[in-house]
């Protein structure tokens, strides 16, 4: 009883209702925030849904095995195998990783460990710019510079797997560098000091202690690099030659999955041909999701 009386004294009624409204309003806004946060989930869900709903029936019609292992592509006859495109995507990505990862990782070592401040001031913005240059500009550059150089050196026109690999390795550099720098910088000082104190040289310390300690971060960098390379479209179209064939030489013309989708989409007739492009999207999507899951696994391990 006493408490109620005091309550009335301090909490006059109009105030009470005002604070109730505030509370409701706060709750509504919190829900809006929450729904916004769910947009990422919703987006992923509907993207997956729509790509699959168009693509999966096509795969079923063509047959999964025929679709991903056959290398014949005659849309008029509804013979639709994307084996060559899958192989092209894998080769181009692997190639760009083989070139891009060492250069990127060593540049990251330079930034994180060796470079004096004034050089960092030059090289960091340079890496940011590399990341910012539109992919179509890379493709155009490849077309007017890299392709002619390859043609002059090896002959054969120049556009093909090698040109795609070179352009893609340029494009994944910023991803590899930025994430590796972060990983190297996160290595505890004590590791480095401990190694130096034992008489190891700076270079030995970097390769024997710091890079192993940063390996999950570097691995994440490579995964993201793979993601960028396998997903790149426009730059690849401009330099890869786009022939549907399994390459036997690094100079052969190839058509990775992304290029295939973009090229055929502009004239594909509605029906199985068009749907097969969505099916190619499904395969690409599955590749990327596997990469994401691997990445999520690595980063959550680092978190522990």
């Amino acid at each position: 009883m006493e408490a109620t009386e005091l309550n009335n004294e301090y909490e006059s009624r109009p105030n009470m209702s005002k604070s109730k409204w505030t509370e409701i309003w706060e709750k509504i806004v919190e829900i809006i925030f929450f729904l916004s946060a769910c947009m990422a989930i919703v987006s992923i869900a509907i993207i997956t849904f729509f790509i699959f709903i168009k693509g999966v029936p096509a795969i079923a019609e063509i047959g999964l095995f025929d679709f991903i292992f056959k290398t014949d592509w005659y849309p008029e006859a509804e013979i639709l195998g994307i084996g060559a495109m899958i192989v092209a995507s894998i080769y181009a990505t692997l190639g760009s990783i083989i070139i891009g990862v060492p250069i990127g990782l060593l540049t990251a070592v330079f930034i994180a460990e060796l470079a004096p401040d004034w050089m960092i001031k030059i090289i960091k913005p340079a890496v940011e710019l590399l990341a910012g240059i539109p992919s179509v500009v890379y493709g155009f550059f490849g077309l007017v510079i890299i392709v002619p150089i390859i043609d002059r050196t090896f002959g054969g026109g120049g556009n093909g797997l090698l040109a795609a690999i070179i352009i893609l390795s340029f494009m994944i550099l910023p991803t590899i560098i930025n994430i590796s720098v972060t990983a190297l910088k996160a290595v505890p000082r004590e590791y480095k000091e401990g190694s130096l104190a034992m008489g190891a040289s700076h270079i030995q310390t970097i390769f024997k202690v710091m890079i192993p300690a940063a390996k999950s971060g570097i691995f994440a960098a490579i995964i993201l690099g793979i993601g960028r390379a396998i997903g790149e479209t426009m730059a690849v179209i401009l330099v890869a030659g786009n022939s549907i064939q399994i390459p036997f030489s690094i100079l052969d013309r190839v058509r990775p999955m992304t290029a295939h989708i973009a090229l055929e989409m502009s004239y594909a007739a509605p029906g199985l041909h068009e749907n097969s492009l969505f099916a190619t999207g499904v395969i690409l999507f599955i590749f990327i999701m596997i990469l994401n899951i691997v990445l999520n696994f690595i980063t959550s391990k680092v978190g522990e």
């Binding site: 509907i46 993601g227 997903g231 989708i261 999207g281 990327i288």
Partner: peptide
């Protein structure tokens, strides 16, 4: 963030 832009395009 990891989905390739061509897949966004298809979608």
């Amino acid at each position: 963030a990891g989905i390739p832009s061509i897949v966004f395009g298809l979608y």
